[in-house]
């Protein structure tokens, strides 16, 4: 299938690459179908691209790379919704709010995207943990050279 994307032009995708958000994501409840695209080959950043809306693409990244103490528990409800059976199938991403300069960019640690890599079911979950907010500086721990 052909997908028009925000940053990668028109691409060819396999049905198996489609990531399903059963309930959409907050603010975009109708968007239930996305695809993960590497920004470029060596980049740690991905684009979470809607397969229906070309203009809708989020910049996401593995949060543990930037926030080494980041942690949360998945509720039983979330596990059931994602049909998660093994911890090894969990992939976690955080949505970035990219700024210019990039050092000012923030990560939404309060609402991580959790993906079950065994069935491509995904969900943006909302944490009730005072340590994590929607806009935390991506480089709070790292210094950009």
């Amino acid at each position: 299938m052909e997908i028009s994307t925000k940053y990668h032009g028109v691409i060819e995708a396999e049905p198996k690459d489609i990531v399903h958000f059963q309930n959409g994501i907050p603010g975009f409840l109708e968007e239930k179908s996305f695809i993960l695209l590497k920004l470029d080959q060596d980049s740690p950043f991905y684009i979470l691209q809607s397969t229906n809306t070309a203009e809708l693409g989020f910049v996401i990244v593995n949060p543990f790379q930037f926030f080494t103490t980041y942690e949360f528990d998945l509720s039983d409800n979330d596990k059931a919704q994602l049909k998660l059976e093994s911890e090894q199938d969990v992939a976690v991403y955080t949505i970035l709010n990219v700024k210019d300069p990039f050092e000012d960019s923030t990560a939404n640690l309060q609402a991580p995207v959790v993906l079950n890599t065994s069935n491509n079911e995904a969900k943006q979950i909302i944490l009730n943990d005072p340590r994590y907010q929607t806009k935390q500086l991506l480089f709070a721990e790292k210094v950009v050279k």
Partner: peptide, 20 residues
């Protein structure tokens, strides 16, 4: 969360160059 998602969705293509 909604607001943050909306903001994250509206970043500009030229900012992506910076990111690259």
């Amino acid at each position: 969360i909604q607001e943050s998602n909306n903001e994250a969705a509206s970043i500009l293509p030229n900012i992506l160059e910076i990111l690259k």
